[in-house]
Design a protein around this nucleic acid. Structure first.
Lengths: 120, 120
DNA sequence: ACATATACTATACAAAAGTATACTAAGGAG
DNA sequence: CTCCTTAGTATACTTTTGTATAGTATATGT
């Protein structure tokens, strides 16, 4: 009998936009992808981008990006360990979108300042 | 003493890209925004887009989009109720991004078919 | 008098996402 | 022999998301 492999975007049938957002929309995925546009980075460097996130989460985000074909993970058999992350061709194809999102976000943040309130 | 109003994107300081993804990345937000590009829609119509989602969630997504300034909510004082949702100018400014995401998602889905597996 | 329609709200619960903290492997430097 | 380094794992827990299900208001049509 044939059945389907369970994927994270199974519950969004037919909607490519939602599929895209699922792939790049994880908590730190956008940031990682954006910075990887400039070249390969090591785990530590990526961690520093995700200020305050636990390694568990960082690993999870990176593994999903890898699984989804957007990043390569290259392990060097050295001690201490060295692992380099870089974008695949598919990852690079997000270049324009990532920059557009970043610019739009800039404007949006400007137009929606966090309101200061007086504390009682 | 001055403090800040808590917002949903407070935990992503300085990253406009992540801010953007936070604003449009909710479970059904992309779909709603995309379809609203074509004109106003009533609550029922939007619900139908979000097949299987509970009203609670749909309302939450729409309220957040409203709060973030991307959609207008127009209530008609009639019975039975009638509420129309439409994009604000700021919402419309996402036009290109939403289409780019949709196209990218299309390609991505094509390149990543769900693998059939034989069940034991 | 009664069912109908719409856009929700309320409550309880389950699942997913994220945090906090501690720990590991193994070779080189001292 | 001990410490340092990196790229993670492991475990326990909290928070956020999302589901399931039922209920509400009220003018209108029959």
């Amino acid at each position: 009998m044939l059945t389907k492999k369970k994927k994270r975007w199974d519950d969004i049938p037919g909607c490519s936009l939602e599929a895209a957002l699922n792939v790049i929309g994880g908590k730190w995925k956008g940031v990682f992808l954006f910075h990887l546009l400039d070249g390969t980075m090591r785990f530590n460097e990526l961690s520093r981008l995700a200020q305050g996130a636990s390694p568990r989460l960082i690993v999870k985000q990176l593994r999903e990006l890898e699984e989804d074909g957007l990043v390569n993970r290259k392990v060097y058999a050295v001690v201490p360990p060295k692992v380099e992350y870089s974008l695949t061709e598919e990852g690079h194809s997000l270049h324009n979108i990532l920059h557009a999102l970043s610019e739009w976000g800039d404007l949006w943040v400007d137009n929606h300042p966090v309101e200061p309130v007086t504390k009682p």
